[in-house]
Design a binder for these strands. Sequence first.
DNA 1: AAGTGTGAAGTCTTTCACAGCT
DNA 2: AGCTGTGAAAGACTTCACACTT
Lengths: 216, 216
Amino acid sequence: MNNQKIPKPTIKRLAVYHRCLENMLFSGKASVSSKDIADQLGIKASQVRKDLSYFGEFGRRGVGYSTQQLLDSVSDILGMRKVWNVCIVGMGNLGMALAAYQGLSKSSFFIRALLDNNPSKIGIPIPNDLSIEPISILKNVVKERAINMGVITVPAEVAQETADALVDAGVQGIVNFAPVRLNLPDSVNVEEIDISVSFRSLAFSISLRSGRRRRE
Amino acid sequence: MNNQKIPKPTIKRLAVYHRCLENMLFSGKASVSSKDIADQLGIKASQVRKDLSYFGEFGRRGVGYSTQQLLDSVSDILGMRKVWNVCIVGMGNLGMALAAYQGLSKSSFFIRALLDNNPSKIGIPIPNDLSIEPISILKNVVKERAINMGVITVPAEVAQETADALVDAGVQGIVNFAPVRLNLPDSVNVEEIDISVSFRSLAFSISLRSGRRRRE
DNA sequence: AAGTGTGAAGTCTTTCACAGCT
DNA sequence: AGCTGTGAAAGACTTCACACTT
């Protein structure tokens, strides 16, 4: 255990370990080694151990980790014991897809509100007992439903103002799917998911490969 | 210009510069400096210059870059002059959302096929002159429509076999939305987009912040 | 004066390698 | 013998700082 600052990549990997441990527990593995996890994810065992070492000592030397205990510890580290109340702003295709996405509800993320400005969408009922509400009531909704996380799936042009509104309403974190860099106070955490950048960088990698000459 | 290997983060940023330059050109800026771009994205100007320097010299000292020329150069670097024919496998909510996503069609990505195994979905017509076809014809479809990129939006349990099928059919790159690490030959490039990991790591960052004590 | 291109320095992250526990 | 936890070494990436060009 040490008191250093946590590397960003470590955070991402912890989230991956969490899922990996869930799967391993589900398939009946009562104990795991760092190598078990590492092999599953295509990384080095020492990386797994180093990542965990930022937060404490969870294993037993010569033995490994109790799957259940390690999962619990990682859940704690990630803040998965807390309830995360989420609102989605922008009910286009992507917003709708997220509203229905199972992967979130399986974890401790609960979607509490779906907001959009398009009058023709207001009121549309969604499977989850939710319906689409106007963005104008954002601030009230966030207060009343104790929402602490916002998801931005609006068009790029209005993403910044949407983010400002979310921050003003009091959310602590934002997942941003809009293709713009948001300018926000650093009291608010932002996670960017940029789909078209992923496609473009994949295109680059392929081109690089097929275009390369003169490599021994 | 130099012959070193390109850092992964550089690739991602190039894709971001591309969009940034598009916006700048659209808003009438005929020339840009590395600082213009950097400020827009919240990074350092030297980072922008270093990234570009892996590929050549695109600017004029004391002047900056021609927006149009730099955009063209970056397009070339990213392989955006090529036509990317894409198929989406797994027409759940996310697959449907991607099929309708404007951000891709605006670039050089063309969705040529939508595949699913669910008999009740086969044949459903989609806005874009496309309809959902059975995965069994994947190999033919990839050949006939010269598809070089596959998108995986199937459930985690069948993601690996879907990936294998895509590789067997001959795609060069895969965008994987399924929450599993794919095991593939390294002749194939993979880009992972893991939505629930992003939510979890956001939860972590928020927890870290509010939970921290003993910091000067 | 303004702005690029780039070695060199600095920082961050991963991997090694080994002491120490079971 | 097997596996963790962790300093120290290696490697990757970013930032500095300055020569150079317009």
